[in-house]
């Protein structure tokens, strides 16, 4: 840090205060809301559910209760398959604080079949340099006794062996 040049009237100050430390902490109890609660409770039962907008017919997962295009409640619940298509991804090579994954690993946007918005999750059981857009993947769940209302109930997604999806099927979500 460069030296501080004080104005003349402050020259008598023995030692300028260069920094102070004021730790702050605020705690919150996150409220998922009705729609996301239904989604999370379904995940605890090893199910994936989305919600369909009555106007534009798009299916959102995880649902937040209101269609972001039409501003109307999305109340129709849709049972979803556990397979989808990678629409985009990144390979994480950089260490960061609090990291639990071994490097390198792949974080991807996955468009579950029958939905209109991709879900973010990990891709495993495949070398990072082989992950690509259009890759078909399936959810790998934790053991039943470890299931809970959290997306950590899905350990990761892995290739399910199907041929790549046609670009046309996910081009709106890239």
């Amino acid at each position: 840090m460069s030296d501080i040049v004080l104005p003349d009237r402050l020259r008598d100050v023995a030692e300028p205060v260069r920094r102070i430390r004021t730790p702050a902490r605020l705690d919150y109890v996150f409220m998922a809301g009705k729609a996301t609660s239904r989604f999370l409770n379904a995940v605890a039962e090893k199910r994936l559910v989305g919600q369909r907008c009555p106007v534009c017919r798009k299916v959102y997962v995880p649902p937040r209760g209101v269609c972001p295009t039409d501003g109307v409640p999305t109340e129709e619940e849709i049972e979803l398959p556990h397979v989808g298509t990678v629409t985009s991804f990144c390979v994480v090579n950089v260490q960061f604080y609090g990291q639990v994954m071994e490097l390198p690993y792949v974080s991807a946007l996955i468009l579950l079949d029958g939905t209109d918005i991709p879900l973010m999750h990990l891709i495993q059981e495949v070398p990072a340099d082989q992950v690509h857009m259009g890759m078909r993947v399936e959810a790998v769940w934790v053991p039943d006794e470890e299931l809970g209302p959290t997306l950590e109930s899905i350990k990761y997604f892995r290739p399910n062996g199907e041929p790549d999806a046609d670009y046309e099927t996910y081009k709106d979500n890239v």
Partner: peptide
């Protein structure tokens, strides 16, 4: 309700 469910 979450914020958007309360507001909408």
């Amino acid at each position: 309700e979450n914020e958007v469910e309360m507001l909408q």
